[in-house]
């Protein structure tokens, strides 16, 4: 008797489903902060503090995931209950978006300013080079060879 294909695939589907749930639970434990006052994400608090609050929150998440709720729904309900502070990072919306944007804006502004500064330094450098005497270029070949030898001799002490 041949087993129907769907029945044969059932253990695989169940296994994949369980793995997906475990992954979602693991991710949510890193995205939600324990409400015991430790300011740590659930996964850290549970291990570090032996925290009952973290365990209760984790159990609730696991149960709701098993009931078919999505991670977004679970996060939204936790936010409704505890406030935004339950999320381990600020939402990327409204005023909290500035948390994410500001460091990169500051970095870009810094790099743009730096490019102007370096250009100005280089411009001043060129101007100074033009002012510097170029009389050494007018030396005789013998004199230049003598200086080159001397430079090589002196470099020996530093290389």
């Amino acid at each position: 008797m041949r087993m129907p294909k769907a029945a044969a695939l059932l253990p695989v589907v169940l296994l994949l489903g369980m793995t997906a749930l475990a992954n979602e639970l693991s991710q949510l434990k890193d995205q939600l902060v324990c409400q015991c006052g430790c300011n740590l994400v659930l996964s850290s608090c549970q291990d570090m503090m032996e925290c009952g609050v973290a365990q209760r929150m984790t159990d609730e998440i696991a149960a709701r995931l098993a009931d078919g709720e999505t991670p977004e729904q679970i996060k939204a309900s936790f936010v409704a209950r505890y406030g935004k502070a339950v999320l381990s990072a600020p939402p990327k919306a409204g005023f909290d978006l500035t948390a994410w944007i500001t460091p990169f804006v500051a970095l870009i502004v810094g790099l743009v300013l730096l490019s102007f500064i370096v250009r100005e330094f280089a411009r001043q450098g060129r101007r100074r080079l033009e002012e510097v005497s170029t009389s050494h270029l007018e030396r005789s070949p013998e004199e230049r060879e003598r200086l080159r030898r001397r430079l090589r001799e002196e470099l020996k002490d530093y290389v």
Partner: peptide, 8 residues
């Protein structure tokens, strides 16, 4: 208050 944790 918000939390700024490892993901940020």
């Amino acid at each position: 208050r918000v939390t700024v944790g490892p993901p940020f």
